[in-house]
Amino acid sequence: MSRHDADLELALRLADAADAITSTRFRAHDLAVERKPDRTPVTDADVAVEDAVRELLAAERPSDVVMGEERGGTLDADRVWVLDPIDGTKNFLRGVPIWATLIALVVDGVPVVGVVSAPALGRRWWAAAGGGAFASDSAGERAISVSGVRELEDAYISTTDLKTWTEYRTRESFLRLVDATWESRAFGDFYQHCLVAEGAIDLAPEAVANPWDIAPFQVLVTEAGGRFTSLEGEERYDAGTVLTSNGHLHEAALRLLAP
């Protein structure tokens, strides 16, 4: 049991509301797509989900603060709900089913509840601080944990986009880690961090990450027995970079990823 169970129950209901919207709009012929100032796409579903979640939070937790990718907000409060209405918008608008709604509750600067809901995959992951990590799919619900891989040469690694390493970090640092590992893929976005939490892969570094992209994974991965830090080793979801791992490989990966 976790003292955050009531907040987790609410977060799961928020995810249900989000799924009802995203599932209807996925592959819709009239899906409206615009460009944000940073040139990333946003769909009418992104905005509709965030507005619906904000409305529910206003009714259920009126004193809490909300920070969302589409409507903004602040992280400077005791209790902040951090939202990414659709993580993987590029997949969503192209009809690729790997996208999810991300919901986190941050208390005193630390994520304590995380929910990741991917209805097109039929999958959901969740955790609350002190309560363990869980996932559900067509087979039902189960507790999850990270892998036991202890050598980089046996490790399975994923990132989102190699180009981001060239733009925000160094391509060479990422390739050093790739060369040291067994297999590399680009599962990308939320999915790779969920795969770390359930032990399917071992390392997921990203050269650039917004708070709403990764906040749920600080609690999900750590409750699954892994580690979550920035590429500088800080246990922060708002540092602009991230490495999730099974814990055993974390320090070795950070050394190779140093610019």
Rank of each mutant, 00 (worst) to 15 (best):
D5V: 11
A17F: 00
A20P: 06
T24E: 15
R25N: 11
A28C: 12
A32Q: 15
K36A: 09
R39M: 12
T40E: 12
P41T: 05
E55K: 13
L56D: 09
A59L: 12
R61C: 14
S63P: 00
E69K: 05
E69Q: 09
E69H: 04
E70G: 08
E70Y: 01
R71G: 07
R71V: 00
R71M: 11
G72N: 12
T74K: 06
L75K: 00
D78Y: 00
V80Q: 02
L83C: 05
D84P: 04
K90S: 15
N91L: 03
F92E: 08
R94E: 15
T101N: 07
A104M: 04
V106I: 06
V107P: 10
V107A: 14
V107W: 02
D108N: 14
V110H: 11
S117W: 01
S117N: 11
G122K: 03
R123F: 03
R123N: 06
A128Q: 07
A129P: 04
G131I: 07
A135T: 11
S136M: 14
D137G: 14
E141Q: 12
R142P: 09
R142L: 11
A143H: 10
I144K: 09
G148E: 14
V149D: 06
D161G: 00
K163Y: 04
K163W: 04
W165A: 06
W165M: 04
T166L: 08
T166G: 12
E167L: 13
Y168W: 13
F174L: 15
L177E: 05
A180Q: 03
F187N: 04
F190T: 01
F190M: 08
Y191V: 09
Q192R: 11
L195H: 05
L195M: 15
E198F: 02
E198D: 15
P205I: 03
A207C: 06
V208I: 13
V208N: 03
P211Q: 05
P211G: 02
D213W: 07
P216I: 02
F217M: 08
T222S: 15
E223I: 03
E223C: 09
E232F: 05
E234Q: 14
R236F: 07
T241R: 00
L243E: 05
L243M: 09
T244P: 08
S245Q: 05
G247M: 08
A252T: 01
L256V: 10
A258N: 13
A258V: 02
